[in-house]
Design a protein around this nucleic acid. Structure first.
Lengths: 195, 195
DNA sequence: TTCTAGATCGATCGATTGATCTAGTGTGAA
DNA sequence: TTCACACTAGATCAATCGATCGATCTAGAA
C-alpha cells in the first residue's frame, strides 16, 4: 500500500462536497464514486454503507470542532473573556466547517436511530460547553438570563444562523459581521443597568 | 363538485406531515397518495408535479405568517413595544407552523431555481419586516447594533432556533422559554448603560 | 515461492422513483 | 339529451436507487 487510506480520504472529501450541495438523499453513491473516479464498491469496503460515510464525516468534524472550542475557551482569563473567546472561535471555526455544518443540520432526519443519536451527542457536547461557561458567568453575577440552557440555545441559534446567511462574496466582511454577532450575544446575556 | 378542493386540501395536509417527517426527497408521491387514500394522478392534476405540491404548502404558510406578523406589529405603540410584539407573535406563530417551518428550512436545496427564488422571497420579506422595525428603533436611539440587517439576522436566528430545540413535552413551558428568548433579543439590541 | 488480507473492479440484483398515458367517472351548462 | 370539463383510478414507463456479487490485483508475511 503506497498511499494508505488515500481512496478512503478521497471518498470522504468528495462526499462532503456533494452532501453539502445536494443533501444526503439527493446524492447517490454513484455520484460519489464518479466524483472520485473510483468504483461504488470502495464505499462499502471502507464505510460499510452510505450512512457510514456520512457518519464518518460528521464524526471527524464534530470531534475537531469540540476539541478546538475546548482548547480555545480553556485558556486563562476572566469568565467573560473566556466566553467571548469561545464565541469568536466558534464563529471562526464554523466558517471553515461550512459544508460539514450544513450536513450536520440538514440531514439528521435521514439517519438511522443510531446515527441520529450519535449526531445528537455531538450537538449536546457543544451545548454543554456553552452551559458551563454560562454557569460560570451566572455565578460571577451581572448576567441577564435565568436559564443557562436557554441562553446557550439562543447563542447557538445566532452562531449557527450566521453560518447560514453570511456570504463571503457579499458586501460585509467576515470580521465585521463576526464582531456585530459577538456584540449581540454579549449584550443578550448581560444585565442592562438602569441609568 | 360536492366538496370543492377537498382532495387538494387532503393531499396538501398529508404531504405537509410527511415532508416534515421524512423530508421532501425522502417522501415519495406514492407515500402521499397512500396516506390520503387517493391515487397518484391527483397530485399531478392539482399541483402539476411533486415540487408544485411543496411550493403550494410553502406559499400558503409564508403568506399567512407574513400577514399575521404585519398585522400584529402594525398596532399602535412605541417602537420598542411594537418590536416586542413582533418577536412574541413570531414565536407564537412559529409554534403553530412547526411543520411548515421545518420544510421551509430543510428542503430548499431540492427546489428548482424558480422554487428556490420564491422561497428566498418569502424569507426576505420577513427579514425586511424586522429591518424596518430595527431601523425605527435605531432612529429612536438607544440601540446597540450598527447594522439593522445583521441584527435582523441575529434575531431570526434566535427565533428560528427556538423552533428547533423547544419540545412541548419537555420540562420548560412555552411561555417560559418564549419570555426568556424575547429578553435575550431585547438585551441583544439594547445599549448597555455603564453604571 | 506460496499464502493471505485488503483494495478495487465491472456487472447485476430487486426495488423504488417521478412521471405519463389511457380510460373512465360524475357534474353542470347548453 | 348532449356536450364539455374537472376529477380520479390504475397500469405502465424509463431511469435510478442502494446494495451485493464473484473476480482480480497488489503487497507483505511465512
Amino acid at each position: 500500500m503506497a498511499e494508505p487510506n488515500r481512496s478512503k480520504d478521497r471518498l470522504a472529501l468528495s462526499a462532503l462536497g456533494l452532501f453539502a450541495e445536494r443533501g444526503f438523499v439527493g446524492t447517490s453513491i454513484r455520484d460519489i464514486a464518479k466524483a472520485t473516479g473510483l468504483s461504488i464498491s470502495n464505499i462499502y469496503h471502507h464505510f460499510g454503507n452510505k450512512e457510514g460515510l456520512l457518519l464518518a464525516i460528521l464524526k471527524t468534524a464534530s470531534e475537531r470542532l469540540l476539541h478546538e472550542l475546548q482548547e480555545a475557551s480553556n485558556q486563562p482569563g476572566t469568565p467573560i473573556e473566556r466566553f467571548k473567546r469561545l464565541v469568536q472561535t466558534h464563529l471562526q471555526l464554523s466558517r471553515g466547517l461550512r459544508k460539514e455544518a450544513k450536513i450536520f443540520f440538514l440531514d439528521e432526519e435521514h439517519l438511522s436511530p443510531e446515527g441520529y443519536r450519535a449526531n445528537l451527542k455531538y450537538q449536546r457536547e457543544i451545548l454543554d460547553l456553552y452551559r458551563e461557561h454560562l454557569l460560570a458567568l451566572q455565578e460571577a453575577g451581572e448576567v441577564n438570563f435565568k436559564s443557562p440552557t436557554i441562553a446557550a440555545f439562543n447563542i447557538l441559534g445566532v452562531v449557527n444562523w450566521h453560518l447560514r446567511w453570511y456570504r463571503p462574496e457579499g458586501q460585509m466582511s467576515f470580521e465585521e459581521t463576526s464582531r456585530e454577532v459577538t456584540e449581540f450575544i454579549l449584550h443578550g446575556i448581560s444585565r442592562v443597568r438602569e441609568p
